[in-house]
Computed example of a mutant assay.
Amino acid sequence: MARESFAIGTVRIRPGTIRNLELPITRLVTGADVSLPVRVVHGREDGPTIWVSAAIHGDEVVGVEVIRQVLATLDPKTFRGTLVAVPIVNVLGFMTGDRYLPDRRDLNRSFPGSARGSLAARIAHLFMVEVVAKCEVGLDLHTGSDRRSNLPQIRADLDDPLTRELAEAFAAPVMLHAKIRDGSLRHAARERGAKVLLYEAGEALRLDNYAIDAGVAGVRRVLAALGMTDPVDEPAPGPSVESRTSGWVRARSTGIFHLEVGLGQRVNEGERLGALLDSFGKTLRIVRASWTGIVVGRTEQPLVNSGDALVHIAEVNQD
């Protein structure tokens, strides 16, 4: 028996086809309509229904390119299941390169939203009703914020067996057991029963190739693990390093920060991470690791104030 068509918005998509559509969001003061762009790959054969989304923060562009490259590899005639791709969730922020919406709300603190709430609440509600409610698994793609860069990493509930299995399949360099924040897409989707992986990599407003390549490979490995595609023909990736605790080393003085460690570097407690200098080159303070672990994030801003986050270290089990 042939698969049923897939309903989303006001359209139905036949099995074995790809369809682009727009879900209406709002109208600008100019009278122009703003819509959420969606592409659905509705496979000819049965399988899971999952979503992959990016740019919930409008300045995070890496995930948009990841989704573009993944979609270019999919054939709906051999695809098993259904993929709902939403490359730009925060359309209004993306238009201006802004992390937030025009009302300064953080969309990723506005879920599950409300049909009659703020603009952020309405976008969140639309996404929950038209995307999350139809899916069993979600991949939410992010980058670092506030002039920070992130090592490719998966953040997820590693105590849930299926979520952990998918995180291991993604095979990012690090998988972090991350607390769920109220109002986030991950929290709201989990309350609806979906399994969610949050991918972090790269820097805002930059197409970092290392972040894109790891994201594309990871998403394709998850699709294969779910049986939606054939396994990717590539060398087997190394296992992800697991971490259950992480934190930022912060500046204890104001100055010009000379960073001396890279993403993915392992550091020991007390190890030198860099130095804070004044404008004449006088060393104001040596910055050292507060604990042993792996560098999963770092500031890209050399001008820092006392208290600013400098280096994000994830604690890992020592062999």
Rank of each mutant, 00 (worst) to 15 (best):
residue 3 R to A: 03
residue 3 R to H: 00
residue 4 E to A: 14
residue 7 A to P: 04
residue 11 V to E: 15
residue 17 T to W: 04
residue 18 I to D: 03
residue 19 R to T: 13
residue 22 E to Q: 11
residue 22 E to T: 10
residue 22 E to M: 03
residue 23 L to T: 07
residue 23 L to W: 05
residue 24 P to Q: 06
residue 24 P to N: 02
residue 24 P to H: 02
residue 27 R to V: 13
residue 28 L to A: 11
residue 31 G to N: 08
residue 32 A to L: 14
residue 36 L to I: 00
residue 40 V to S: 01
residue 40 V to I: 06
residue 42 H to T: 08
residue 44 R to F: 03
residue 46 D to I: 04
residue 49 T to A: 09
residue 54 A to M: 12
residue 58 G to N: 09
residue 58 G to Y: 04
residue 60 E to T: 01
residue 60 E to C: 07
residue 60 E to L: 04
residue 66 V to W: 05
residue 68 R to M: 06
residue 69 Q to K: 11
residue 71 L to T: 02
residue 73 T to V: 06
residue 81 G to W: 00
residue 82 T to F: 00
residue 87 P to Q: 00
residue 88 I to L: 01
residue 89 V to F: 01
residue 91 V to N: 04
residue 91 V to F: 01
residue 91 V to Q: 05
residue 96 T to Q: 12
residue 100 Y to F: 15
residue 101 L to M: 08
residue 102 P to H: 10
residue 104 R to S: 07
residue 106 D to F: 02
residue 106 D to T: 01
residue 109 R to M: 13
residue 110 S to G: 15
residue 112 P to Y: 11
residue 115 A to P: 07
residue 118 S to N: 08
residue 119 L to K: 06
residue 123 I to V: 15
residue 123 I to T: 12
residue 124 A to D: 03
residue 128 M to D: 05
residue 128 M to P: 02
residue 129 V to L: 09
residue 129 V to D: 12
residue 135 C to R: 00
residue 136 E to G: 15
residue 138 G to P: 06
residue 146 D to Q: 07
residue 147 R to H: 07
residue 148 R to M: 08
residue 150 N to C: 10
residue 156 A to K: 05
residue 166 L to H: 05
residue 171 A to F: 13
residue 172 A to T: 05
residue 172 A to D: 08
residue 174 V to L: 12
residue 174 V to E: 08
residue 187 H to A: 14
residue 188 A to Y: 11
residue 188 A to T: 04
residue 188 A to S: 12
residue 191 E to M: 05
residue 193 G to I: 00
residue 194 A to V: 14
residue 196 V to S: 08
residue 199 Y to F: 15
residue 201 A to K: 05
residue 203 E to C: 13
residue 206 R to N: 10
residue 208 D to E: 13
residue 210 Y to W: 09
residue 210 Y to C: 03
residue 210 Y to A: 10
residue 218 G to C: 08
residue 218 G to M: 08
residue 219 V to S: 00
residue 222 V to P: 04
residue 226 L to G: 02
residue 226 L to I: 03
residue 229 T to F: 01
residue 230 D to W: 05
residue 232 V to N: 02
residue 234 E to C: 00
residue 236 A to T: 14
residue 237 P to L: 00
residue 238 G to R: 15
residue 239 P to C: 04
residue 242 E to S: 09
residue 242 E to G: 09
residue 242 E to V: 13
residue 244 R to K: 11
residue 253 S to Q: 12
residue 256 I to F: 14
residue 257 F to V: 14
residue 259 L to S: 12
residue 261 V to R: 15
residue 264 G to H: 04
residue 268 N to Q: 15
residue 268 N to P: 02
residue 269 E to V: 02
residue 271 E to C: 02
residue 272 R to V: 12
residue 273 L to V: 14
residue 277 L to G: 01
residue 277 L to Y: 12
residue 278 D to A: 12
residue 279 S to G: 07
residue 281 G to F: 11
residue 282 K to V: 11
residue 283 T to M: 11
residue 284 L to Q: 02
residue 284 L to A: 09
residue 286 I to W: 13
residue 289 A to V: 14
residue 292 T to N: 09
residue 294 I to K: 03
residue 296 V to W: 06
residue 296 V to K: 04
residue 297 G to Y: 02
residue 297 G to M: 02
residue 299 T to W: 01
residue 299 T to F: 10
residue 302 P to S: 15
residue 302 P to E: 15
residue 303 L to Q: 12
residue 304 V to R: 00
residue 306 S to G: 10
residue 312 H to N: 07
residue 315 E to W: 09
residue 317 N to I: 10
residue 319 D to H: 09
